[in-house]
Each structure stands twice: as structure tokens, then as C-alpha cells.
Simulated assay, not measured.
Amino acid sequence: EIETALARIDGVAQAVVTARDDGTGHQRLVGYVVPAAQARPDPAALRAALARTLPAYLIPSAFVLLDELPLTANRKVDRTALPAPDPAAAEERTGREPATAAEAALCAAYAEVLGRERVGADADFFALGGDSVLTLRLVNAARRAGWAITGRQVFRHPVVADLAALARPLAEEKQPDPAPAEPLVSLDATQLAQLESLWRRRR
């Protein structure tokens, strides 16, 4: 499904998508593209095009442009010969410095979960290799930093700045409503006299 969507993008002649170990034990999607004649697809444009038809977690975290795909003796794509993506290319997408406390906390949480030295406020969680498992870790990391986010928010708003706009300080999380007070009982003069008489007898 991902390869089909990638191959349909203008300027793409051939496409292969595979999962690669990022060195930390996590599998991350990488897209390999052979450009059409006279074309030079930009990774950001490829990512934006895929985002129109695929959920964020199915979009490759990196793209590699190749002159041709490596083939086996049987003329099939040799996936073992596909080169690893350049880690520096991903670092370039981290963007600006955080401008708010929420952005700073989430930048740190992204970096912790994704195993990166630095993550900027324009970073996309899934573009940097996030997945459903790491999403849960991100939610927990944010809570440890004092901010409440949900997994659904991460999937819908994976960019730090967008997610930070939705994050709430844990101190502001809604507290349970207090139990209602016991209703007051209205007594007439006769009932009050009976209660007073009972009280005197017990003394």
C-alpha cells in the first residue's frame, strides 16, 4: 500500500519501502525512490503527498533517492543491498528552538523517546521514526515532564508545535467533583420538641 502510493507521486519512476533497524532495536520505514527523467523529488514533498492518502504512522521516516534499484540475479529488488538513510538528513528537519514551556517539554520528550540529541519545535514525530509503540512512551515521557497529551493527539498532530498547543499542564487536569453535601432536614416545632426530649432522656 505504501509503495503503491509512493510510486503514484509525480516525478517517481520506481519506489520501494522497507523497514530498517535504526540501531536502537526499533524498525522504521524508509522509502527508496528512483526519480523519473528530469525529476528530483524532494523528501518533504514526498512526505506531504503521502500524507494526503496515508496515516502519519505509515509515512516513511526517511527517503533515499537512487539512480536505480539494486537487483538480485533473478531481477528482483535486492532489499539487503539498499543503503541506509543519511541520519543527517533527518536532523535537518528538527527545525527551530522551542518558544513555549510546552514546546520545550515536548522537544525533550521527543528526543528522549526517539534517541536523538536534539529535536526542534517543527519536528514531526513519525517523520523522525516514531511508531505506535513509541507513541505510548512519548505520552508517558510528557507526563513525567508535567504535561498531559493523548496517543490520539500524537497521531493527529505529530509536529511538536501543534501538539504543544494541545498539551495541558498536569496541575490543570480536571479534579473529580466533590461529593454533594448531605441535604438539610427541615423539622417543625413538634419534631424539634421530640428530639429535645429524647436528647434529655439519654443524658
Score class of each variant (00 low, 15 high):
C107F: 03
A104R: 14
A88T: 12
T150Y: 08
T80V: 08
W147I: 09
V154I: 08
A101Y: 03
D122I: 04
P98E: 00
R144F: 03
A89H: 14
G95M: 07
P87V: 06
L106A: 11
A111C: 03
A171H: 07
T135G: 15
L136Q: 12
A148Y: 08
W147Y: 14
L163H: 04
E103G: 11
E97F: 09
A88H: 07
V139R: 00
G95K: 00
L71G: 00
E117N: 13
A141Y: 01
A161G: 10
R144C: 08
V139N: 04
H157Y: 14
F125P: 09
A121E: 08
D131A: 10
L114R: 10
A167N: 06
D162H: 11
A89I: 03
E112I: 12
T72P: 05
D78H: 01
V133Y: 06
E172F: 03
L136A: 15
E91G: 03
A148G: 05
G115A: 12
A109T: 13
V119I: 12
E112Y: 02
A109Q: 04
R137I: 04
E91F: 08
P83K: 01
R137P: 02
A127Y: 07
D86L: 01
L128R: 06
L166E: 10
V154L: 13
F155H: 04
A101V: 06
A99W: 00
T135D: 05
R168E: 12
